[in-house]
Design a protein around this nucleic acid. Structure first.
Length: 320
DNA sequence: CCCCAGGTAGGCT
DNA sequence: AGCCTACATGGG
């Protein structure tokens, strides 16, 4: 395997940018704690900050904990190999998606290894919510409960400890813009106090999923996100509204979420997690104009229906 | 003013 | 067990 990075003076230098695109990594919906000014990206995780700049076709990652971010950005995994496996898998099927186009667009995505607490809170807030609002809520939580820290002249706030979070009432989370999820958040912080990340890590994916679903505000989809973005389990396929649309594109029929998950898992096996991210990012970019549920598709459908309605011969067969 | 957003919980049959 | 719906809140 070709190493994609080197470490020099506490900086991580990413030299192979086919497999690392910071914009895709952050905007593919797996993380809610980052921001961007001009061409500089700031990524927050727990107590640490990473500042990422592009210099001479390399990425430079400055951080107060480089080892942490090597793990966080999953830099020791060979994504080229993963992508060629996915290409091979797609070439054996006849989906209407072009895998080369998908990987051309989002091939720089990496699955992050995020902190347990932050991932759980973030994805509980994510339920029936939009990404911008989730980001704002997470920011509010940091800025009101976290510690004020500084790195390289950048002021930022750490993510609060579980103990601090568990002391908050419903009103705090409502102020954070969490809406009706505030109740679940108060509950889950207390429930998390009886859980040990180190022990959870040892469980099988199915066992761990069962445990996570027992938490307040965590259903199947959120559990799958936690399994993927925190526990780095690849044998999960979070099914959200976007994946449901993708499912129809791929298999040409609708079914319930549980069946979709089962089918997608057997379709993609231990590549499921990666495939899910590449597909999600691609679909959400609105690059797929020819498949179902896109504006062009709906326009075409409307036009066809109108045409049939207005055709005299067809009129007698038309049943509302 | 409408609709939607990385769904979930609780009450219903 | 499986379906149905309310749920806050800001942005388009």
């Amino acid at each position: 395997m070709e190493k994609i990075y080197t470490i020099k003076d506490n900086k991580i230098i990413i030299t192979k940018t086919d497999d690392f695109d910071i914009d895709s990594i952050l905007n593919c919906g797996q993380i809610f704690t980052y921001y961007q000014t001009n061409d500089i990206f700031y990524v927050l995780s727990g107590d640490y900050l990473a500042v990422i700049k592009k210099e001479n076709s390399n990425y430079i990652i400055y951080s107060n904990n480089t080892d942490y971010f090597v793990e966080f950005f999953d830099l020791n995994t060979d994504y080229s190999q993963i992508k060629s496996k996915i290409k091979k898998l797609f070439s054996e099927k006849n989906y209407c998606y072009d895998i080369n186009d998908i990987l051309n667009f989002g091939g720089g995505i990496r699955i992050l290894k995020q902190s347990f607490l932050e991932t759980v809170i973030g994805f509980v807030i994510s339920a029936n919510n939009n990404i911008k609002r989730i980001i704002n809520s997470m920011k509010y939580i940091r800025e009101n409960l976290g510690q004020k820290l500084e790195f390289d002249n950048n002021i930022y706030y750490s993510f609060p400890s579980l103990q601090v979070l568990a002391n908050q009432n419903e009103h705090f989370f409502t102020s954070a813009g969490c809406g009706y999820r505030a109740k679940s958040l108060v509950k889950i912080c207390k429930e998390l106090q009886n859980m040990d990340y180190k022990i959870l890590q040892l469980l099988s994916t199915e066992q761990l999923r069962t445990k996570l679903v027992e938490l307040s505000g965590v259903g199947g989809k959120v559990a799958d996100c936690i399994l993927l973005f925190c526990f780095y389990r690849q044998d999960v396929f979070p099914v959200d509204t976007w994946i449901q649309k993708i499912y129809q594109d791929l298999f040409l029929y609708k079914t319930d979420v549980k069946s979709m998950r089962t089918k997608l898992l057997q379709e993609f096996g231990n590549l499921a997690g990666y495939v899910q991210q590449y597909l999600f990012y691609y679909k959400r970019s609105n690059k797929i104009w020819f498949c179902q549920d896109t504006p062009i598709w709906q326009f075409a459908k409307l036009w066809c229906v109108t045409f049939i309605k207005n055709t005299p011969i067809q009129k007698q067969f038309y049943v509302l």
